[in-house]
Nucleic acid binder design. Structure first.
Lengths: 333, 333
DNA sequence: ACGTGTCGTTAACACGTTATAGTGAGTGCC
DNA sequence: GGCACTCACTATAACGTGTTAACGACACGT
């Protein structure tokens, strides 16, 4: 246990190598227009390695006025499998671009938003929900270059939003419409996920209109089999009966499956159900759940590119790439 | 769109308020032993608010030599519901202590470990897996004060490890032992989660020994119903048959349930299954899954306290608090 | 010998903050 | 008036980095 190990600075390396701090900096950063003798270069490199020198990111950030950190702001709703995967893909995508992606969960009751980015000096902030105007203004005046709100209806994230979220609902509806004349939608009972839920529902709606089907029957239910059962009864009693169900995600889809079992019914014979996310549990449900899954690596690349463009300069405009949607067809629909 | 908005510094505030930079600092930090006239204090506050001043965290960190950021290093295995919750609880726990908890997913192929903490100057690093000696040494020489490896078998995290992880397996075994004479264990097929799996299995083993039951029958299976089915056949054919199954987590437990369905068998009549995590899908499985769930807020508090103690000074020793384990009894066992 | 370059290196500054030492004005005391 | 002392504030030194301008040494051409 080192008592309170002092930091190794570039001055230490310089002293050890018998050169000045500037020379150390030139060597370690490979400054282009600076000639350094091979002998001293090796001496500096050896000293740095010996002492285990690592430049202070704080000093570096202070000097450059910008760090290479991209801060991802997670909303406070429960983080499932999908978000976990997206985080990993984003980390990978930003790493490819020499940026460090870091995530903060903005759970309610924790530090205020300003405290968070005040503690980090990120180069960019990436969020799932739109910022308030004052927050956005504050960030800009704090020198944070980019503010991208995913799934926001305005600003940089807009094009990304429309493509992916609507397409998910659309894919659900198209698959069900092949064999069902009336569709239902399970809307989440947590208003906080509306940023995702609304566009997905819109996708279902527009496909119904396009194919000449009646409006989808939208119900908001909690994650309990009993609630699902009573909703299912209503659906089947309608005229014409609602037999194809698009769920907001796999959890709500599995709730419908549980409701069906409770009523002694069976999917897809009595009612077809389709989810979103392809969570690990989806393949293990009974019956195995048909689900829609986004190409997360592609989505991550899209966001990373958007951030890079904004960092390099505001003049380059976005080139919206349609993220690919895949249908994992199992037995429930 | 501001072209490239310059940062607002304390010098700007000072100029606007007609005082020196030092005075601004005194006012904004409420320096105790410094008397400031109420008039000037208000003037400074007003100027800061007007200009939207936010101190530069980089400069602050450089000055203090330590930031208020705690970096959580996530392993590269798939992040499920449990990890998501733990992150939220940790964020909350650290926020209570005026620390900013931030997470980086160390996905394979991304930046190397050194690049990550080099980019952040965290006050402490919290990881699920033990560090290599060279990494640990490098961090210390970079001035990072605390390095806590959760679930590590040595060092600061040790006491936390034993308590929680072993207790989970023990709780599973105790519940099953009430009505089953021979237990089986579903070990994950992903070696990366061994840090969790091993202690849990140890908990099951020690309870079996304590109660005079034979050694648990450990099997490693992938997350496919077919694999589970063939393992189930072997278990039931054994003499005496293995009828109580502890699974590494809910997903593996649900795989066993799926295997049972495939064989036309039923839980808990033919075989009892118990999982870990109480993921949302557990309550929706058929039959609803009995599962062990940790008191995540308590665990988060424990870790936060450990970090705080290490930050305040290395002399204070740990006071291990046994995190509470709860059994969510449903129908599968 | 003397300007003219090039080469390798270094002194010095700036980034924005906090803390320590100090400064000038005012006040009380003898 | 001189001294001590508080008061409200300011000048300045770090923290560790990257970079610009300068500088000595040396070679070269005339």
């Amino acid at each position: 246990m080192a008592p309170r190990s002092r930091r190794v600075t570039s001055a230490d390396v310089a002293r050890d190598a018998g050169v000045s701090r500037a020379t150390v900096s030139f060597v370690l950063n490979n400054t282009a227009h600076q000639k350094i003798t091979d002998a001293t270069r090796q001496r500096v490199l050896a000293a740095a390695a010996k002492l285990g020198y690592a430049p202070s990111p704080a000093a570096r950030t202070l000097r450059y006025g910008r760090s290479d950190v991209v801060l991802g702001l997670l909303p406070d709703w429960p983080l499932g499998h999908a978000v976990g995967n997206l985080i990993q893909e984003l980390t990978l995508a930003f790493a490819k671009r020499n940026l460090t992606f870091v995530v903060h969960s903005s759970v309610r009751g924790a530090r205020s938003l300003s405290d968070i980015w005040k503690a980090l000096t990120p180069a960019a902030v990436l969020a799932f929900e739109p910022f308030t105007d004052s927050d956005a203004a504050a960030m800009r005046s704090a020198g944070i270059e980019v503010i991208v709100a995913l799934y926001d209806s305005s600003g940089l994230g807009a094009e990304a939003s429309i493509t992916s979220a609507n397409a998910i609902g659309a894919a659900q509806a198209r698959h069900l419409a092949a064999s069902h004349r009336r569709l239902g939608y399970v809307y989440p009972d947590d208003e906080r996920v509306a940023v995702f839920a609304r566009p997905r529902l819109d996708g279902v709606r527009s496909v119904c209109a396009e194919l000449g089907l009646p409006e989808p029957d939208v119900r908001t239910i909690p994650l309990t089999p009993d609630a699902a059962a009573s909703t299912i009864r209503t659906w089947l009693a309608a005229d014409p009966p609602v037999t194809g169900i698009c769920a907001f995600n796999d959890e709500f889809a599995m709730t419908v499956l549980a409701g069906l079992r409770k009523l002694g019914l069976e999917a897809p014979r009595d009612m077809a159900v389709i989810g979103v996310d392809d969570s690990p549990a989806a393949a293990l449900a009974c019956p195995p759940l048909t689900t829609v899954v986004e190409d997360l690596p592609a989505v991550a690349e899209l966001y990373a590119d958007t951030v890079m463009r904004a960092l390099d300069g505001p003049e380059a405009s976005a080139s919206p790439v349609e993220p690919r949607i895949r249908l994992e067809v199992r037995e429930s629909a």
